[in-house]
């Protein structure tokens, strides 16, 4: 006779389940020194990471996360906050998705996308800290390529993939601090505003960007 509890066939390791059931470092830091938000509610998982950093040593004193995601997303975010706590931001930046996955005893390959998001959340919180504290060592000028790679973090809610890979972005121009992005989408589209807001937020954070212009394609 099948009984619940003694017959659970989860595709997850005990460690993943433990972090899913009782995630560590959950919550929000109101006075965070750096924060990162990856993913988008319109298309799937989302993760937010908050940091408190010691300005002298650059050691991460406190770290918290929030997740709107599946088990892999929650477990990876939980383990990665444990791994990053007490490390300098330089060391924390080097933590890879593979290391986080190994620490969890492995994840199903199809869940890679959801767990990568947690790693990206940490990196974007660190980048936010660095940008705010003038720690970006070589201030790389924003080019078309930089913009394109940032736009890979903006989701296309219709497809659940980013707007670059789903070919919504048809043109990028960068000129004297003004970025112009052309989208293959009419301004009346139900997701036009959500995509625009997300896109502007991602690009405005770049140090030498003064203005972001989004151009919709009508008809």
């Amino acid at each position: 006779m099948l009984k619940a509890g003694d017959n659970l066939k989860f595709p997850y390791t005990e460690k993943v389940l433990e972090h899913f059931r009782n995630p560590k470092n959950v919550g929000k830091l109101e006075d965070a020194d750096g924060k990162g938000l990856e993913g988008s509610p319109a298309c799937g998982d989302m993760v937010a990471v908050y940091l408190k950093v010691d300005p002298k040593t650059t050691v991460i004193d406190d770290i918290k996360f929030e997740s709107y995601g599946c088990a892999s997303n929650i477990a990876t975010a939980s383990i990665i906050t444990e791994m990053a706590k007490g490390k300098t931001i330089a060391d924390a930046k080097k933590i890879t998705w593979q290391e986080a996955t190994d620490e969890l005893g492995g994840l199903p390959p199809v869940k890679r996308h959801c767990s990568v998001l947690a790693v990206e959340g940490l990196r974007s919180a660190i980048r936010d800290y660095e940008e705010k504290h003038g720690l970006v060592s070589e201030q790389e000028p924003t080019t078309e390529e930089v913009v394109r790679s940032r736009l890979k973090h903006v989701m296309n809610p219709m497809a659940g993939l980013d707007i670059v890979r789903t070919e919504l972005v048809t043109k990028i121009e960068v000129k004297e601090g003004i970025v112009r992005v052309v989208l293959d989408l009419p301004s009346s589209h139900q997701f036009a505003n959500a995509i625009k807001e997300d896109l502007v937020e991602k690009l405005e954070a770049l140090w030498d960007v003064k203005e972001v212009k989004v151009v919709f394609t009508e008809g």
Binding site: F10, F20, Y68, G69, C70
Partner: peptide
């Protein structure tokens, strides 16, 4: 998220 809910329910 749905999978998180179904997994907790399964447990």
């Amino acid at each position: 998220e749905g999978e998180s809910m179904t997994l907790h329910l399964d447990m």
